[in-house]
Design a protein around this nucleic acid. Structure first.
Length: 443
DNA sequence: AACATATTCAACCGCCACGAG
DNA sequence: ACTCGTGGCGGTTGAATATGT
């Protein structure tokens, strides 16, 4: 038990992935989607088990992954979320677009744990070490407030080093919003984000943060603020279309996992792939101008026309030898124009030609209105959902969490079976979409 | 320069949950 | 009810790299 049948097969490679293997896998998934993972290695011509392929894709090849060191804000958010969620790395990762659970787990084990200990905080309980050492159980509920506020003090001090102004902004919450939260109003932004986007139960949240000094704790919750989470939804950037991809192989370098570049086969089928390439996600919350992806997808170094407008792209090499893709800031938000370009990541789409795919895209673009309306309607549903018992909410966590980790878009697509039922996350996305539209107008 | 030790992080392992048959 | 195949998750390992002596 436990071991996948495919792993018993002979001649399966293990260990680090070679650039050639990466290329095969990426090419295959870009072209066909992964479908059933167990069939991927065979179809892609890889001597790997499906599980290994899946892992490689999720942790390394996925185009929406961010590369590079974690920002202070990200670290703070991880600590915050860990205090609430524990070692539920996938759920924590869901709040950090572009980051994988593995990455966060590694960061936690190698870095954050130490940092917390150095600050005198037990990384397991998030209580002061002295308290942990002296024994506990002096009334758990009474300990929660100091435990949280201690950590928040740490976070505040950490955060203030780099960004005190924005910290103050982030840690503020209007009395009205707070009141809404306190009386359990379903229309509260706070709840919708905490409960739905953050995907832990309201009860858990309340239990954690709404203890005796709850207002203080809450208003000091660093990166977990509703305002942040509202912006925590990835927006989609359009990939350059096929036609714009350079034939010049010099500009299509790929990077091995150690950061060493290798040349992509110039025949890499982007002409087919373009229709399937997912929109990479970025993050308003971090509000970076640059977006780094683990593999450097071919990016033209001049103006790029897409079906949705022109974007200027600048390919740069970052310090850590990973590639990065930078858009000029003025067009950064414009790059989010195709908010709902549908892609079928994860759904085998073997027979889809470029043309078909483009038609498909257009159809879905018009379908967006319907879908948006549908999503909007689901906001009201959120009300009833949020009034359910926390147990129910806990059960829903898993469903909601499908939204972010793999590809935000996948979960939002009308044709995605996962989304055939209205979900809480849909509501949030709809809100976010409205917010973006309000800010940038309908594209 | 050579070695030892520490750190990082990609990948693997084992388990669980779920759906299909 | 049971088995099987699969996806997903968290814990762990170990090679590569960094740092210290």
């Amino acid at each position: 038990m436990g071991r996948h049948s495919c792993c018993y097969k002979q001649k399966l490679r293990k260990g680090l992935w070679s650039p050639e293997e990466d290329e095969k896998l990426l090419r295959h998934i870009t072209k066909y989607g992964h479908g059933c993972w167990s069939s991927v290695p065979k179809q892609a011509g890889l001597q790997r088990c499906g599980k290994s392929c899946r892992l490689r894709w999720i942790n390394y090849l996925r185009p929406d992954l961010k590369r590079g060191t974690f920002s202070q804000e990200e670290e703070n958010l991880i600590i915050e979320l860990h205090a609430v969620l524990g070692n539920r790395w996938s759920q924590i990762a869901a709040q950090l677009p572009g980051r994988t659970d593995n990455e966060i787990k590694n960061l936690w084990n190698s870095c954050l744990k130490k940092k917390l200990r150095q600050k005198g905080i037990d990384p397991v309980t998030h209580k002061p070490l002295s308290e942990v050492e002296n024994g506990e159980d002096n009334g758990r509920s009474q300990e929660k407030a100091p435990e949280v506020s201690n950590e928040l003090n740490l976070l505040k001090s950490e955060s203030s080093k780099s960004d005190s102004a924005s910290y103050e902004h982030r840690t503020s919450i209007s009395p009205k919003a707070y009141a809404l939260e306190m009386d359990g109003s379903c229309s509260s932004k706070i709840e919708s984000n905490y409960v739905t986007n953050n995907c832990y139960s309201k009860d858990l949240f309340l239990d954690r943060f709404m203890s005796s000094s709850r207002q203080e704790s809450y208003t000091n919750t660093t990166s977990c603020q509703p305002s942040d989470l509202m912006g925590n939804f990835p927006i989609q950037m359009s990939y350059p279309t096929t036609e714009c991809l350079p034939n010049d192989s010099n500009s299509s370098h790929w990077f091995s996992q150690s950061g060493r570049p290798f040349d992509m086969n110039s025949e890499f089928p982007f002409n087919v792939a373009a229709s399937s390439i997912p929109t990479p996600t970025t993050n308003l919350f971090l509000h970076n101008n640059s977006f780094c992806y683990k593999p450097s997808l071919s990016v033209p170094s001049d103006n790029v026309s897409t079906p949705y407008g022109s974007h200027y792209w600048e390919a740069t090499a970052s310090n850590n030898s990973n590639s990065s893709i930078r858009s000029n800031s003025s067009t950064e938000l414009r790059t989010s124009s195709p908010l709902n370009i549908p892609y079928s990541w994860g759904l085998a789409d073997c027979g889809t030609s470029t043309k078909e795919a483009q038609i498909h895209m257009m159809e879905n673009h018009t379908e967006e209105a319907k879908w948006d309306e549908y999503l909007h309607n689901s906001i009201s549903m959120l009300a009833s959902v949020q009034n359910q018992a926390s147990e129910t909410l806990c059960n829903d966590i898993k469903t909601s969490m499908h939204l972010v980790p793999d590809n935000t878009l996948v979960a939002m697509l009308p044709h995605n079976t996962k989304q055939q039922e209205p979900s809480q996350s849909s509501s949030i996305f709809s809100k976010d979409m409205q917010k973006l539209r309000a800010a940038f107008g309908d594209m």
